[in-house]
């Protein structure tokens, strides 16, 4: 499955994912609001996508032939901003402005304000449709662009998500990759207690997606799955990434109350200590 992954890329991407996690804690603390749980769960996926997979260039953020990233779970905005900052799309100092008046770093991502953000999302169940449109446009224009849509599992309860997935399968969009951040939780609790979406991989296969299931915190597995997707020319690929909400911060893990609440200063300090930074280095 997939090409061999050069071993030297992995430590760098793992450290980028760690840096994204630290920034998620900082940004939600500075903002006093936000969605740390689902931002921490998606950190490894975004580290690999933005840091390695996507053919993007901060010097030419609007290049037509670039790959596109649609963060359909737009509430994971701080993780994307942190990843884009690491890739050079914005100064890291600007991360402090997240959710503040006049900032380019809107609470949910907005394509109009920040280079590197390809789609405005927030209301769930729309991002995959936008991604399908982008993939159709690339095919029609004979552009090499590939389109990556990152979904949350809560929005797999939305009918529009499945409408759009059906279209991606129908049009056999080989340039479309859907990554599901399957952290198991939504705002009010566990997805399987609220409205079960399993067996999600079987459903995606039934919708004509070449479907892979991976550990969404294992950089090597993410890289391999993306390589497999690139080699899949018969239709779209879905990657079900099994993740942990709040990953990396013990007291946020598997606790849905961190879906949409910011840490206090003491909580942020504790979280950053767990993520390997303390005192001055924590950067609060």
């Amino acid at each position: 499955m997939g090409e061999a992954v050069p071993a030297d890329r992995i430590p760098s991407l793992e450290s980028q994912a760690l840096e994204i996690r630290r920034d998620v804690v900082r940004m939600t603390y500075w903002a006093g609001s936000g969605h740390p749980g689902g931002s921490l769960s998606v950190a490894d996926l975004l580290a690999v996508l933005v840091g390695d997979e996507l053919r993007i260039d901060p010097a030419r953020p609007e290049a037509p032939e670039r790959d596109r990233l649609v963060l359909s779970k737009g509430h994971a905005a701080p993780a994307l901003y942190a990843a884009l900052a690491l890739r050079g799309f914005l100064p890291r100092a600007e991360l402090r402005s997240f959710r503040k008046l006049g900032s380019r770093l809107q609470g949910h991502v907005d394509r109009g304000t920040l280079p590197g953000v390809d789609a405005s999302t927030g209301g769930l169940g729309q991002g995959i449709g936008v991604a399908v449109g982008m993939a159709l446009d690339a095919r029609l224009s004979a552009r090499p662009s590939r389109v990556y849509a990152v979904l949350g599992d809560g929005e797999c309860q939305a009918g529009t998500t499945w409408e759009a997935l059906m279209a991606g399968g129908h049009y056999a969009l080989e340039n479309l990759v859907v990554l599901l951040d399957r952290n198991g939780y939504e705002s009010d609790g566990a997805t399987e207690a609220i409205l079960g979406i399993e067996p999600i991989a079987d459903k995606l296969r039934a919708f004509r997606y070449h479907t892979l299931e991976i550990d969404g915190h294992d950089v090597r597995q993410i890289l391999r799955a993306l390589a497999t997707a690139r080699e899949t020319t018969s239709g779209p690929t879905a990657i079900v990434a099994r993740t942990v909400t709040g990953k990396g911060v013990s007291f946020m893990e598997n606790d849905h109350t961190w879906q949409a609440r910011a840490p206090t200063r003491a909580e942020a300090e504790r979280a950053l200590a767990e993520l390997g930074t303390a005192g001055e280095e924590a950067g609060l």
Binding site: R111, D118, G127, V130, G133, M134, L136, T160, E163
Partner: peptide, 17 residues
């Protein structure tokens, strides 16, 4: 097909360039 909301999202994605 009969999916007006998603048609609008797909249309948007096709038009952003």
């Amino acid at each position: 097909g009969a999916m007006e909301a998603t048609m609008m999202s797909i249309a948007a994605g096709m038009s952003l360039g």
